[in-house]
């Protein structure tokens, strides 16, 4: 009976994994084919990998696009993890009627489609450009700023803080730790799986962000990966081989981040509270 159950679970997971991974397999195959074959749905690897790669690197500055995307994603993620977790922690641990109201108001900011905010936000950054051109329109900081803290992550941290043991805090207070010390030395290490999850999601969101960077970045030398991929498809006769090559290169960083951070989702990693 148990064997049957185990067999069923493995079969199910393998099928799900296949369905999930099939499009990625297709991407990998397509980056080795030439455009005409790809649009005809060729499912076999071809011999055009190096040609596609060299075409991509010769015609497009993919190196600087990778750097820009990486810079945006890392800076936004690191800041977001600190600022949002502080807020999520603050709202839950020092809960009060007033804070609950403010928290609910903050959630409102998630509820409007970004397309509706774009024009006012662009105007805001137009104003910022007049005073601080270094963080205004056409800079990487303008891409990052609206994402250094979002209600989504504050909400995530607050919900996870609900599962955090208050006894640990009381014990730390007894030991004479300051409130900020408790946050950094007790809470952060204990919640590292939540930080890992938030880190993955934030990195991915920022890496894949399209609409806002599109609008706010103008110069060709500060494009991000999604903008570059969008450009590749801009022609009347797009070269799908090159497009897939760029897509694969653009997918690798997020996949790697996930791969390295997923060990925090393994049971038995928690429990150690010492900083």
């Amino acid at each position: 009976m148990n064997k049957l159950k185990t067999g069923f679970i493995y079969t199910l997971l393998s099928m799900v994994a296949f369905i999930s991974l099939f499009p990625f397999l297709w991407m990998l195959i397509s980056m080795t084919n030439k455009s005409v074959d790809i649009s005809q749905g060729r499912l076999l690897p071809g011999g055009h990998l190096f040609e596609n790669i060299s075409k991509l690197f010769e015609n497009y500055d993919i190196g600087s696009a990778l750097f820009n995307s990486f810079f945006i994603a890392v800076v936004a993620t690191v800041l977001c993890l600190i600022i949002s977790s502080l807020a999520g922690y603050g709202f839950e641990i020092y809960r009060s009627k007033g804070k609950d109201i403010v928290f609910n108001i903050l959630l409102l900011s998630l509820m409007i489609p970004f397309a509706a905010l774009m024009v006012p936000l662009f105007r805001l950054f137009g104003g910022i450009s007049q005073v601080f051109p270094a963080i205004g329109i056409d800079t990487l900081y303008a891409v990052i700023l609206p994402y250094v803290t979002t209600a989504f992550f504050i909400f995530l941290f607050r919900q996870n803080t609900k599962m955090f043991s208050r006894e640990l805090i009381e014990a730390a207070r007894m030991d004479g730790l300051s409130e900020i010390g408790i946050f950094f030395r007790i809470y952060m290490p204990a919640m590292k799986n939540t930080f890992a999850a938030a880190g993955i999601i934030s990195f991915m969101n920022n890496w894949n962000n399209y609409l806002w960077p599109l609008v706010v970045l103008q110069s060709p030398d500060i494009k991000t990966i999604p903008l570059l991929i969008s450009n590749l498809g801009s022609g009347y006769s797009p070269d799908y081989g090159v497009i897939y090559t760029a897509i694969v290169i653009g997918t690798i960083p997020t996949a790697l981040i996930f791969f390295f951070l997923q060990r925090y989702f393994v049971e038995g990693m928690t429990g150690s509270v010492k900083g």
Binding site: I83, L86, F91, Y94, K99, V102, L106, I112, T149, E179
Partner: peptide, 17 residues
């Protein structure tokens, strides 16, 4: 202290959202 923890988020979200 709780308000202080949340202050930066409140400020940034007010400004950008």
């Amino acid at each position: 202290i709780g308000w202080f923890f949340a202050s930066l988020s409140i400020l940034l979200i007010s400004m950008f959202y």
